[in-house]
């Protein structure tokens, strides 16, 4: 599904990713762990197409698409979803309107009929119930005045509605209490299937108790320095990144 080869990327002339290789087959969930500054967020932004990140070398294919040649919105409607570490506030833009516009953009790309406001509300409310979100979050402006937990749940609501082929979760667990963590995990697990892949970026092993990954990778200085099964996450939790970074150096 996703194939990253020899990816080099920089921001403001500063090299962040240094020859990153990663393949995520369809249906698999991979976790990327690593210390601060290792390039985790840069990887998610490069994959989603944020401006300012310059890819100096390497390639990324998504299915048979050259992902790096596409605009952010083209990637989104092709099925890439980035759950933001810090979801952005859009003053005055109603959450329902925003969500429906996004959903219809994706549906148009898939050749499906757009859905009207009434159908949308039904769909959204059902999902919100599962996420334990009150109805009024649809009326409020996007992320404005939302608590940290509400913002993350709102990201999960978007992900569930847009049902992407590839979800990039950028430290979605940061700042969440255990109940919210469980809701996030449940949403990801509910999407699991042969056509859904995910890249879960996290500092902590704790999230991976709930979303059990197929593979775990350790990112250090812009490269993957170690890969393994779910047990690697446990290992890291016990010994820290230091030993792996020392071994890789």
């Amino acid at each position: 599904m996703l194939k990253i080869e020899n990816l080099h990327a920089s921001i403001d002339g500063k090299q962040i990713l240094n020859g990153l290789n990663l393949t995520i087959p369809a249906g698999e969930i991979h976790a990327i762990m690593g210390p601060n500054g290792s390039g985790k967020s840069t990887l998610s932004y490069v994959l989603a197409g944020r401006e300012g990140y310059e890819v100096t070398e390497g390639s990324v294919t998504f299915g048979d698409l050259d992902l790096l040649a596409m605009e952010p919105e083209e990637r989104a409607v092709a099925g890439v979803f980035l759950a933001f570490q810090a979801p952005v506030e859009l003053p005055g833009v109603g959450n329902a309107n925003f969500l429906r516009t996004a959903l219809n953009a994706v549906r148009r790309a898939k050749g499906e009929a757009e859905i009207d406001a009434i159908q949308f509300l039904k769909l959204a409310r059902a999902r919100m119930k599962v996420l334990n979100m009150p109805d009024d979050m649809l009326k409020r402006p996007v992320n404005v005045g939302f608590s940290g937990g509400e913002k993350k749940r709102n990201e999960m609501l978007q992900m569930a509605l847009l049902s992407p082929k590839l979800a990039l979760l950028d430290e979605t667990d940061s700042g969440l209490d255990i109940d919210a963590l469980k809701l996030v995990s449940d949403t990801v697990n509910s999407l699991r299937g042969p056509a859904f892949s995910a890249l879960v970026i996290t500092h902590y092993q704790r999230l991976l108790n709930h979303i059990v990954p197929d593979r775990v990778h350790v990112l250090s200085a812009g490269r993957i320095v170690k890969s393994g099964g779910p047990e690697l996450a446990q290992e890291l939790e016990a010994s820290g990144y230091g030993a792996i970074q020392a071994a890789a150096a």
Binding site: R50, P72, P87, V88
Partner: peptide, 8 residues
């Protein structure tokens, strides 16, 4: 970027 990453 937030809007575009949602397909707008």
């Amino acid at each position: 970027f937030y809007c575009r990453s949602r397909g707008l």
